[in-house]
């Protein structure tokens, strides 16, 4: 009935470091279920991350795991995939890691369409360093470095991914836990660069500054703003104001980078 996460969690590593009510644990469970459902072997799966709360995920799971430098996860993952294309490569991280300091690696991985699944846990804040605003913090929101409200406009990660050439882009939320593994499994089955953004919450450094009274209010917020793509298609722009569309937002089949490069190698070697 329940899922046996113990099969994939490294012995002795729980409880994890994430704060009470942080959604990262929910997302990690979704990732584990997704890997299990697509049948990736532990030995042939590499999980790579950058720096930040979300990037601590690889330490808990029993695969070939690589916790790298801030924002660079996708670039390390690219090296792994190019050197050993038969490995399943998954990159995980947060919003600051992925689209601020790692933004360049992110858009170029999208452009190459290299077969990596990139899971971004977007909690709209730099949690680990104490709640500074990130590139996805809403305008006006309070953060430790926006005491008068955030003057910056935020990125839409999914639009950024689509614009940069990712061939699979999906979005879910930590509240909609049962959907997370479905989105991730489809992303992993997709041949190409797949981006799955999971809207997440940071009660500790975002919630308390932005008038969320509890973890539950933050979870309810995720529940309230999420609109499945099928429903959104029937809604007006006015009705969609303030909402976030979830589901598989974009999918197309295009040549995958690592396998195209192996074809190039075969061509050169054939003379």
């Amino acid at each position: 009935m329940g899922f046996d996460y113990g099969k994939y969690i490294r012995p002795g590593k729980l409880p994890h470091i994430w704060c009470p009510g942080c959604g990262h644990g929910i997302v990690m469970k979704g990732l584990i279920r997704a890997i299990d459902s697509v049948g990736f072997s532990k030995d042939m799966t590499s999980i790579v991350s950058g720096i930040g709360c979300a990037s601590r995920l690889p330490g808990y799971v029993d695969f070939c795991t690589l916790h790298t430098t801030h924002g660079r996860g996708v670039a390390f993952a690219t090296g792994i995939k190019m050197a050993k294309p038969e490995m399943n490569v998954i990159c995980v991280g947060g919003d600051g890691d992925g689209v601020a300091i790692g933004g360049n690696h992110f858009i170029h991985a999208c452009r190459r369409n290299i077969d990596i699944t990139y899971l971004i846990m977007n909690n709209n804040i730099y949690g680990m360093t104490g709640g500074q605003f990130s590139p996805t913090t809403p305008t006006g929101a309070k953060a430790s470095t926006t005491p008068y409200g955030n003057p910056d406009p935020p990125f839409d990660i999914a639009k950024l991914a689509i614009g940069a050439g990712a061939t699979f882009v999906a979005r879910g939320t930590a509240f909609h836990a049962a959907q997370i593994d479905k989105l991730l499994a489809e992303a992993m089955r997709h041949k190409g660069f797949s981006v799955v953004e999971i809207l997440d919450s940071c009660p500790t450094t975002y919630g308390r500054r932005n008038k969320y009274k509890s973890v539950i209010e933050m979870m309810n917020h995720l529940k309230d703003v999420a609109v499945p793509l099928s429903a959104a298609e029937k809604m007006t722009a006015e009705q969609l104001r303030g909402k976030v569309i979830t589901g598989v937002l974009y999918k197309e089949n295009k040549p995958e980078y690592a396998s195209e490069y192996r074809k190039l190698v075969e061509r050169v070697q054939a003379g």
């Binding site: 644990g25 930590a174 049962a178």
Partner: peptide, 19 residues
């Protein structure tokens, strides 16, 4: 009712629902 929502949403791997 074994809807599993608690297990799915428990961020801390603390809640399990089994037979």
């Amino acid at each position: 009712i074994a809807c599993m929502q608690c297990e799915l949403r428990c961020p801390d791997f603390a809640v399990t629902v089994s037979q």
